[in-house]
């Protein structure tokens, strides 16, 4: 039997006294792609942030295991070093910190935690060049400050580029498709597919079936009011596209009554 790399059990979180996740459970095995869909405000980004270790969210119940270890106790950097990566829905701009420079530190920190020698500048540049191809990243974007003045689409592409560089075990993509033009969507999706493999899993948060045409998921989950209310195969996404969320809403509310 497979042991899940990520196991979320009955997770409950809140921020400033407001409950957002209400007992969410989810297991992800190695090599699987799970899509998470759900209406605005249902808690998708909150889930992603809690997994990445953002301090402002308070966990009030449940637990999360990552490779069998308790994830919630770890610092954000330790989670990254153990192979968790979040492509942010809204990546921040960091003026004055060059993309290449900070990535070199990040890559070497992660290598260090795996007991690998750090890359020197030459090795790193070659490695970066190779990864830039994956998302057809423009050379000058790596020299610029992190996300500063990047267009919405460029920011998303930069997130996937970073993911390619850091080679995580679990990639969480929070609406990486939103704001992308048609070509960029294909490029980014191909980039993600290039990273797919038996040892690497993905949580793909999206609103649109169109992304899932490219990144074909093994499972689709619907998050509603802080819980997963429905799970299925890739057909579930098509069904949602067709019917919207109302039927899920109705079903869920009815069940409650």
């Amino acid at each position: 039997m497979k042991t899940p790399i990520l196991e979320i059990r009955n997770l409950q979180t809140g921020v400033e006294g407001k409950q957002i996740l209400n007992g969410l459970s989810l297991s992800v095995n190695a090599g699987e792609v799970h899509a998470i869909m759900g209406p605005n405000g249902s808690g998708k980004s909150t889930l992603a942030s809690v997994l990445a270790g953002k301090a402002e969210y308070e966990v009030t119940g449940g637990d999360v295991k990552f490779f069998g270890e308790s994830l919630l106790e770890m610092s954000p950097e330790d989670r990254a070093r153990k192979g968790l990566f979040l492509a942010f829905q809204y990546p921040v701009e960091i003026p004055g910190v060059s993309n290449a420079n900070f990535l070199k530190t990040a890559v070497n920190e992660i290598r260090k935690s795996k007991g690998l020698q750090p890359m020197d500048s030459k090795e790193f540049l070659l490695f970066m060049k190779e990864k830039m191809k994956i998302v057809e990243m423009d050379k000058n974007m790596t020299q610029r400050s992190v996300n500063e003045g990047f267009s919405g689409g460029e920011k998303k592409r930069n997130e996937v580029f970073q993911m390619a560089m850091l080679e995580p075990q679990l990639g969480i993509l929070d609406e990486t498709d939103s704001g992308l033009d048609i070509d960029a969507l294909r490029i980014v999706a191909n980039g993600v597919n290039a990273l797919r493999g038996p040892e690497r899993s993905f949580l793909v948060i999206t609103h649109y079936q169109r992304l899932l045409d490219y990144i074909v998921p093994d499972y689709v989950h619907v998050l509603y009011k802080g819980r997963i209310v429905r799970s299925g195969g890739k057909e579930l996404a098509l069904e949602l596209e067709e019917k919207g969320y109302d039927w899920i809403r109705n079903e869920t509310e009815n069940v409650k009554v």
Binding site: R79, A80, R81, F85, A106
Partner: peptide, 10 residues
């Protein structure tokens, strides 16, 4: 947080 989420220590 962004930098830490990439594996860089605090």
């Amino acid at each position: 947080f962004y930098l830490r989420s990439r594996g860089i220590g605090l």
